[in-house]
């Protein structure tokens, strides 16, 4: 019986570990996960590591070093289904802020011996390097969505991960629009759903953790922020320059005069 369970591997690249911890965070469902899947390779959880190949790989983090740019190909080669988890793996993460600047200048400023630092000029998503079968968004990912993707994989069906805006989640919950009723600069209308409208439900504008929607019209949203809500120019740039800063159209929307160096 044990051998018939699909083998799961969890891989880490440049990231904070928050997304893979979502798997351990499953708590109530963790035993069911372990019953359905053999967690074969998950260094964060266990030092017992089973060799590949793996039926499904969860990949966290972005590619920021020459070493990782090679390693991701090895991961791809021994993975049946490759699912990226989180904003780093799907968009380059917060560390993609380096893409707008000179990374050597950073290493000179931060490290006493920058010659030991072997890093790339850009932080890039996994899909820039290898073929990805499914991208799960979020910073961090939603554990309910992770379970849904794993359930869909196990049952050989399409994951039910809606790609509409966060606004749809607000409206379904009955959350009052913080942009219309309070004038908050909310990224919800251009942000991919998945969090369940967490921030607006707690009276805070959306941070855009799940990245842009397919047809995100950030130019129109930003224009409204400037003209009607009076959002200062530096704040416009900062709003887009977060966890999904390298994902278009957040990339160009955040690249305002005030955020350019």
């Amino acid at each position: 019986m044990k051998n018939t369970r699909p083998k799961l591997a969890v891989w880490k690249f440049a990231s904070c570990d928050g997304c893979q911890l979502s798997l351990l965070d499953c708590e109530d469902e963790l035993l069911a996960v372990a019953g359905a899947i053999e967690i074969a390779m998950f260094p964060e959880a266990s030092s017992a590591m089973v060799e590949g190949p793996y039926d499904v790989s969860l990949v966290e983090g972005s590619i920021t070093t020459p070493h990782d740019a090679e390693r991701i190909h090895e991961v791809r080669a021994q993975s049946g289904t490759l699912i990226t988890i989180g904003a780093c793996a799907t968009a380059g993460g917060i560390q993609a802020l380096r893409n707008f600047a000179d990374v050597e200048e950073f290493t000179r400023a931060v490290y006493a011996s920058p010659e030991y630092i072997d890093t790339l000029g850009q932080s890039t998503p996994i899909a820039d390097h290898v073929q990805v079968d499914f991208e799960l968004r979020g910073c961090p990912i939603d554990k309910g969505q992770l379970l849904e993707v794993l359930s869909a994989f196990l049952n050989r069906r399409k994951p039910r991960i809606p790609s509409h805006s966060v606004c749809v989640e607000c409206k379904r919950r009955g959350t009052v629009c913080v942009m219309v009723a309070q004038g908050s600069a909310c990224l919800g209308p251009v942000t991919h759903a998945g969090c369940g409208a967490l921030c607006p439900t707690y009276d805070r504008a959306c941070f855009g953790c799940f990245g842009p929607t397919e047809r995100a019209n950030s130019a129109s949203l930003t224009e409204w922020w400037r003209r009607e809500l009076g959002v200062p120019e530096p704040d416009v740039g900062r709003a887009y320059h977060t966890f999904n800063t390298w994902a278009e159209p957040f990339r160009s929307a955040g690249d305002t005069k005030d955020t350019q160096r």
């Binding site: 509409h164 805006s165 409206k171 629009c177 919800g188 209308p189 130019a219 129109s220 949203l221």
Partner: peptide
Amino acid sequence: IAERCLSCANCTLA
């Protein structure tokens, strides 16, 4: 209109 519309669905849900 599409230059301004966010395709966010708020109008239909409200």
